[in-house]
Design a protein around this nucleic acid. Structure first.
Length: 842
RNA sequence: GCGAGAAUGGCGGAAUUGGUAGACGCGCUGGACUUAGGAUCCAGUGGGGAAUCCCGUGGGGGUUCAAGUCCCCCUUCUCGCACCA
């Protein structure tokens, strides 16, 4: 039964079923072709489903995947679920269901939504991190890290979030609140699992060099790792058989060091505080522990300083002078050695501190005005004995050499990166493969004991005495280890764990004997293109690189870096509407008139602004509605046509109507409205229409290049130009339309498949050969030459493309309008072949 | 405060990287076909102007025959980091 109109509601589900039935996108096993592994950052399957912002990256990778298949690559294109995590646990508590049920329900929603978009995933490789067939291997990798000495337990001051009843990683806390929910976070000392990611700081830094990642993301990682070169210097403490070890990046300023500062938590504080100062020190330390993180971080270098003198003094090894030892919370216990020497003349923080407490300021570098502020710029050293006259770089080298020779210190490298806090007090996460015997010793379970399954619980809150929820599973927790009674670790792993290695599990997701097949790994890795949001710039991407580097060192993977190329798609924003009181309204509740926006029913004025899409802002656009009304192909096209993929974009549903109109024009060009067969406009004859043919080749070229450059918006506009020209043309050769349908295929696959059938082809477009363009066809035989006089456009001439410089200039000078402006002597004539002539006159 | 990026019609955005600014799309205006159209097609659409002209890429300077593009200064916005010694 031929169809005469473009009925996306019939076409799209039909092709989705067809692809599924024919396993069109099952990953090829042929190893003779080049491979291409294109990966989306897999989503957390939330309860609210997808909005149109989510698929932007998925559509982009789908275009790449589909085009690469047509170009002869074996493509690995997969999707899975980052399905452990807090929201499912909270939703479970609200609804009285098990997080597992919540999770599978949410996954079904997400999967249905993705399926509607016609994304060419190999669903046979679907995985979920909360599936025990998956997390068994997450535990297995933990075991490898533990064996390598990279996992350890420590009593550490942690970010405790009372509202959630869990600790959070440093990266998850900003300005004293949990970045996801805004709940306040406080400091507590707890025994936690840590990863020695700091041991890999240098490698993680160096590895960035060769990666094809956005420079901004690489910078953020460099910044996060925070390598700084400097020195450790030892200051003997007067009257104690002990010394303070400080870290400094400015050993050259040692002669200006007039006091030392310890972090309030520093272990030496207790020992060196004098009786006279003890009360003040104790009070200050207490005050600091009560001070929230928000107060303590987030202050700038010149912020007002607090602190207390310990009563003790140290000897400056350079000057031999006695300097007071203070404690102050501007010195962080967790960075460097938790102690600094202060050179107030040349450090903003020390300057602010010295001014507050009237401590001496001694200049050792020329420059600036110390009466006003610290001088941190370069200059000749003064008051510095053997350093006098040197600039900073030279003085640093000289000082480090001197310290090392005298045994007072060493040149060293320090990282800002901290060890990774890896345990959470949650239920819905991976259990650790660890037990503790009665002596308190931790033991790694053998691989044969994996997976350590989550026990069934009906209550996911922490216990009354503050233990993690797993402590409620008494029967589960009590076990034995090598015949001795033991208890299981009741913390679980953070959500980052599963996403650290999922790209490897996709290689052999159904193997129960190995985490991944080494041959598959050798063939497919590294990921050729990884697309996702920039919000994962430091967290997920740094953690995953860390695990990968460990696996590389263990010989378990063959590539030192997991993601060769990274691309961050921008977010989609939409207008939101709210009244004075902050109440939001749905777009269909408001209307625009007289230059303002009003609620239709009440005439209440509302203000509009562009915001991130979210349920609470009433500005979410649902892809299901778009698929229903305009079709998945139109939606896919609009997602990419909005603007450069990396930019954030402003959603306008009318734009989807625009890409839909384009697809309608394509349809009408090919399909006869009466018969449903080929349009009479199409011809099997050869046709001499250089303009149209050029437009086709321009489109093929642009689309081909877009697969590498990811500049899909301009590629789509080039396809539109071809269709506009073809619509105007009397006749269009079938062969040209066929090429066009093939380049359209990655963007609008349902329509392309349908038209491909109408054009008489039996096979799917999925593996049709990618059209090639001919540079010769792109050459035009006439050029439009811009003619300028003194840089101003005075005429445009149509000339043969092979016009000589002389002929072009002659034609330009002959032009009537040019003549009018050509007064005075011609000083110069500039000719840019094929583009313009500029005549410079008097 | 430090670091990175951005600013082009009513709107989203193009511009071979120094060579006709505004491609393509949205929106808008007019027309055609229509009982009707939120369908389709055609024409127009940066501003000013009768004009073959003038002005115009956040603002100010500069380099150049020629600047959205290069250099200097400023403004605004976005993102990241933020007492890391």
């Amino acid at each position: 039964m031929p169809m005469s109109r473009y009925e996306h509601r019939a076409i799209e589900p039909r092709w989705q079923d067809w692809w599924e039935k024919h396993k069109t996108f099952a990953t090829a096993t042929d190893r003779t072709r080049p491979k291409y592994y294109v990966l989306d950052m897999f989503p957390y399957p939330s309860g609210s489903g997808l909005h149109v912002g989510h698929p932007k990256g998925y559509v982009a990778t789908d275009v790449v995947a589909r085009a690469k298949r047509m170009m002869g690559f074996n493509v690995l294109r997969v999707m899975g679920w980052d399905s452990f995590g807090l929201p499912a646990e909270r939703q479970a508590m609200r609804e009285g269901l098990h997080p597992r049920d919540i999770t599978s329900r949410n996954i079904a929603t997400f999967k249905g939504q993705l399926r509607q978009l016609g994304l060419s995933y190999d669903w046979g490789r679907e995985l979920a991190t909360s599936d025990e067939r998956y997390y068994r291997w997450t535990q297995w990798i933990f075991a490898r890290l533990y064996e390598k000495g990279l996992a350890y337990q420590a009593e550490v001051p942690v970010n405790w979030c009372p509202a959630l009843g869990t600790v959070l990683a440093n990266e998850e806390v900003k300005d004293g609140v949990y970045v996801e929910t805004g709940d306040p976070v406080e400091r507590r000392n707890l025994k936690q699992w840590m990863f020695r990611i700091t041991e890999y700081a240098e490698q993680l830094l160096d590895g960035l060099e060769g990666l094809d990642w956005p420079e901004g993301i690489k910078d953020m990682q460099r910044n996060w790792i925070g390598r700084s070169e400097g020195a450790h210097i030892r200051f003997p403490i007067k009257g104690h058989d002990a010394h303070i070890e400080v870290f400094t990046t400015r050993p050259d300023t040692l002669f200006g060091g007039t006091y030392a500062v310890l972090a309030p938590e520093h272990p030496l504080v207790e020992r060196i505080t004098t009786e006279a100062q003890r009360a003040a020190v104790t009070a200050y330390r207490l005050e600091v522990t009560h001070r929230s993180d928000r107060d303590r971080t987030g202050a700038s270098a010149d912020a007002e300083k607090t602190g207390v003198w310990t009563g003790a003094t140290a000897i400056n090894p350079a000057t031999g002078a006695e300097i007071p030892i203070w404690i102050a919370d501007y010195v962080l216990a967790s960075y460097g050695t938790g102690a600094v020497f202060a050179c107030p003349a040349h450090d903003e923080r020390d300057y602010a501190f010295a001014k507050t407490f009237g401590l001496p300021i001694v200049r050792v570098v020329e420059g600036g005005d110390l009466a006003v502020e610290a001088w941190t710029g370069d200059g000749a050293h003064v008051n510095s004995s053997f350093l006098d006259g040197m600039d900073i770089a030279a003085a640093k080298r000289a000082m480090i050499a001197w310290l090392e020779a005298q045994g007072h210190g060493d040149g060293t490298v320090q990282y800002r990166l901290r060890d990774w806090l890896f345990s959470r007090q949650r239920y819905w996460g991976e259990p650790f493969p660890m037990v503790f015997t009665e002596d308190g010793e931790a033991h790694l379970l053998p691989d044969s004991a994996l997976p350590v399954r989550l026990p069934e619980l009906d209550e996911y809150r922490p216990t009354e005495d503050g233990q993690p929820p797993l402590a409620r599973a008494a029967e589960w927790a009590v076990t034995e280890f090598e015949g001795r009674p033991a208890v299981r670790e009741v913390n679980t792993m953070p959500q980052w764990a599963g996403s650290c290695w999922y790209y490897l599990r996709f290689l052999s997701p159904n193997r129960s004997d190995v985490a991944w097949d080494p041959d598959e790994e050798d063939y497919w890795m590294p990921v050729d293109l990884y697309v996702g949001g920039a919000e994962h710039a430091v967290l997920h991407l740094l953690y995953a690189r860390f695990w990968h580097k460990v696996l590389y060192d263990l010989g378990l993977v063959t590539s030192p870096e997991p993601f060769k190329r990274l691309f961050n798609q921008g977010m989609i924003h939409a207008n939101s509407y709210r009244d004075e009181r902050g109440k939001y309204f749905y777009p269909e509740q408001v209307e625009e008139r007289d230059g303002g926006w009003f609620v239709k029913e009440s005439n209440t004025p509302v203000s509009t602004r562009l915001e991130k899409m979210s349920k609470s802002r009433y500005n979410v656009v649902n892809p299901d509605d778009m698929c229903e009304q305009y079709g998945a192909d139109a939606l896919r096209l609009y997602e990419l046509f909005m603007g450069p993929l990396e930019d954030s974009a402003h959603w306008e549903t009318s734009g989807v109507a625009g890409t839909r109109r384009f697809l309608d024009r394509v349809w009408r060009l090919v399909v006869d409205p009466e018969s449903g067969g080929l349009s009479a406009k199409l011809t099997r004859d050869k046709l001499d229409n250089a303009e149209l043919e050029r437009a086709l080749h321009a489109a093929i070229k642009k689309v081909t290049e877009a697969i590498e450059s990811m500049k899909f918006n301009t590629a789509i506009s080039e396809m539109m130009i071809f269709i506009n020209e073809a619509t105007k043309a009397e006749k269009v050769p079938v062969a040209w339309i066929e090429d066009f349908v093939l380049i359209l295929n990655p963007f609008a696959p349902h329509l392309a498949e349908e038209l491909w059938r109408v054009l008489g082809h039996e096979a799917s477009t999925a593996f049709a050969a990618w059209p090639t363009y001919d540079e010769a066809k792109l050459v035009v035989n006439t050029i439009t030459l811009a003619v300028q006089v003194n840089g101003k456009l005075r005429a445009t001439l149509i000339l043969p493309a092979d016009v000589t410089q002389e002929a072009a200039i002659a034609a330009a000078r002959a032009d009537e309008n040019v003549q009018r402006f050509l007064q005075g002597t011609v000083r110069r004539e500039i000719y840019v072949p094929g583009r313009l002539v500029n005549i410079v006159a008097k």
